[in-house]
Design a binder for these strands. Sequence first.
RNA 1: GUCCCCUUCGUCUAAAGGUUAGGACACCACUCUUUCAAGGUGGAGAUACGGGUUCAAUUCCCGUAGGGGACGCCA
Length: 467
Amino acid sequence: MTVVTRFAPSPTGYLHIGGARTALFNWLFARHHQGKFLLRIEDTDRERSTEDAVRAILEGLRWLELDWDGEPVFQFARAARHAQVARDLLAEGKAYHCYCSPAELTEMRERARAEGRSPRYDGRWRERDPKDAPPGIKPVIRFKAPQTGETIVEDLVQGRVAVANAELDDMVLLRADGTPTYMLSVVVDDHDMDVTHAIRGDDHLTNAFRQTQLFLACGWQPPRYAHIPLIHGADGAKLSKRHGAVALDAYATMGLLPEAMRNYLLRLGWSHGDDEIISTALAIDWFGLEAVGRSPARFDMEKLLSLNAHYIKDAAPERLIPPVVARLEASLGRALSPTERARLDAVLPGLRPRARSLIELADGALFLFRARPLPLDAAASKLMSDDARRLLGALKAKLAVLPAWDAAALEACVRLHVEGAGIKLGAVAQPLRAALTGSTVSPGIFDVMVALGRDEVLGRIGDLAGP
RNA sequence: GUCCCCUUCGUCUAAAGGUUAGGACACCACUCUUUCAAGGUGGAGAUACGGGUUCAAUUCCCGUAGGGGACGCCA
C-alpha cells in the first residue's frame, strides 16, 4: 500500500512554525516511503478563510521547499459530497436532525459548566420524534455517536489512547445552512483522498476519537494517526502572535535559510541519536514516526540561528549573493555596480563565518559600498590617534607603489612597515581597519584591502591619514 | 470543571533495567589571531517529588505536583 500523507492547514491565519513542522513531518514521511504528500486547504469556514492566507501558506511551503503532489484540494469545493455523506448517514439512522438554537446550546453549556459537568450537547433531539420539530427552524444534522463502550486510537506517536464514549457528544455534521463542518469534511476527504497517515498537531488528538467513530459509521477504514506534540514559545506558553509564532515568511525576511529551518524543525521532537546537522537527503532517509518524542518543545531562536550560521558557511555563493545584494541595495537605496559586486564576491569568504543570518551577512558587507569619507563608529574613531594617523600616512606611501595587490603582498608590506617602526602588527592593523571599514570589526584586513582595490584603499586612508 | 497528553542540564534531545547519565545551542575559560567571528581544547550544568516492582531503575507500575491540549452550527 502506498503511503499517502496530507498537510491540511486552514487558511484563517498564516503558516507558522508549528504548521511548518507538521508539513515537514508529513512531507518527510511521504518521501521516506516514496509515497504521496498531498495538500488540502481546509476552507470550510467561509467567514474567516481568506485568499491572502491561502497564498501565504503556499508561499511558505515553497520557501521551505516542501513540494506537494498534485493540485491542492480546496475543501469547500467538495461541500456537496460532504453534505451527501451526512444525508446518507441520516437515512441510515446514524445521524439525526437537531433543532436546538444557538442560544439554547450556549445555555446548555453554561449550565453544565456551572454544575461542574463537562460542557456537552445532551442529545435532546437524538431520539425525539421529528414530528416535534418546531416550525420555521432549520435543523442541523448531528452524528448519533455511540454512548457506551470506548473508542481507541492506536496513535503512531502517542501510543494506544482510549476514551470513554460517554465523554463524547453528538457532533454537528451539517450546519443549518447546509454546509459541512470540519469534522465531517476531514473524514470524507481523508477517505476520498486515500490518506493512509494523518500526521498533525497534538491539539487534534481528541478529534481523532470523533473522526474514528465517523469513519466506522461510514464503513470506512480510518487512517493511521500520528499526533505530534506542539511547539511552545520560549516562555513555555502556547505559541501565539505575542510569542514569535509569526508567519513563516518573517523568518525568510530575518535572513534564515530554508535548509536551516528544516533542520531546526526536524530536531524539535524528532531525533536520530546524537545527530544535529542533518541534510534533507539524510532526513528523508532516516525519518520515521517511531523516533518522534511525545513532549512539547520550546522554540529557541538561538539554536535556529546557530544552525543557520552553519548552513551559511556551507551554502554555495550563488545562493547567498542574490539575497545579500537585494538587502544591500535596499539599505543603500541604489543598485550595486559590477565593480561593487566584484568586491562583494571577494569578501564573501571572510564574511561568511561571521554571519548568523543573511541580514548579518549584508550588514557585514555594507562598509564596502559606503561613500567616502567613511563615517567611523565610536570604537573606530577612538583608535584614530595622531600616532595612528601618522602611521597610516607612512603606510599609504608604501602601498601606493606596491607592485602587486594581493593578500600575501599586502601582508608582507604591512609587516615590513611595522617592523621598521618597531611596533606590533595590531598597532597599525586596527587603525587601518578603522579607516577602511569605519569599524573595529571586519574580515581579515588584507582580504578587505584586496576586495576594495588599491584606489579605494588609498582614498580611504587618505581621508584619515596624517601628514 | 471534565477528559486526554506530557515531565532528563536554562533550551532541544540521547540513553528502549546495569553508562563516570552522552550530544547540540547558550554560558564560562583557554587556544589560534591583525579585530570580531569561525575553528580547536576544556569547564560548569539535568533524570520534578513520593511510593512501589526488581539483585539493579532515567527506563516498568501507582500517586502527588507542575505544564499542555481538547471540550463550537472554528479548524
